[in-house]
């Protein structure tokens, strides 16, 4: 029998949780779309069987990615459409909005990734659904 202070090892589902958060960040920073598709595949493949920790991170990152798409693509498209392509004010609002919003979404992902690496659940503020029971 191992001693009581032995390292219990990573919590169940931590690898999947880290993968979900990483894909969320990769979707925002490196290969938008492709990483999201992989994240969706992970989600649909594991949603019935994943441990609570992993399921929580998968649900959060899928929801946050959808919000990110809405906030970054739709809202920017709206700004461009309403403001007009050839106006300085449009580009000022658009760039300020895009950079601030994108950076905020990335920072939320960083916190999510750090929580996943520590084996802890994380709910994205405002845009994340409720955590599944067990978290």
């Amino acid at each position: 029998m191992p001693p009581s202070d032995a390292d219990p090892g990573p919590p169940e589902g931590q690898g999947l949780a880290v993968a979900a958060e990483t894909l969320y960040l990769v979707n925002l920073l490196l290969v938008p779309g492709v990483a999201f598709v992989i994240l969706l595949v992970l989600y649909f493949r594991h949603r019935a069987s994943a441990p609570a920790l992993a399921l929580g991170h998968l649900q959060q990152t899928v929801a946050a990615s959808l919000w990110a798409g809405l906030l970054l693509i739709l809202v920017n498209g709206l700004i461009l459409w309403l403001g007009g392509y050839d106006r300085a004010s449009t580009w000022m609002v658009l760039l300020l909005y895009f950079v601030s919003c994108h950076a905020a979404l990335v920072l939320l992902g960083v916190v999510g990734l750090a929580r996943a690496m520590a084996g802890k659940p994380y709910r994205y503020p405002l845009i994340g659904p409720r955590l599944p029971t067990g978290n």
Binding site: V106, L107, V110, V111, L113, A114, R115, M117, A118, K120
Partner: peptide
Amino acid sequence: FFMMTVFAFNMVNK
């Protein structure tokens, strides 16, 4: 800088 942010939050969480 991105790594430093992950590092800081990771340390505080652990």
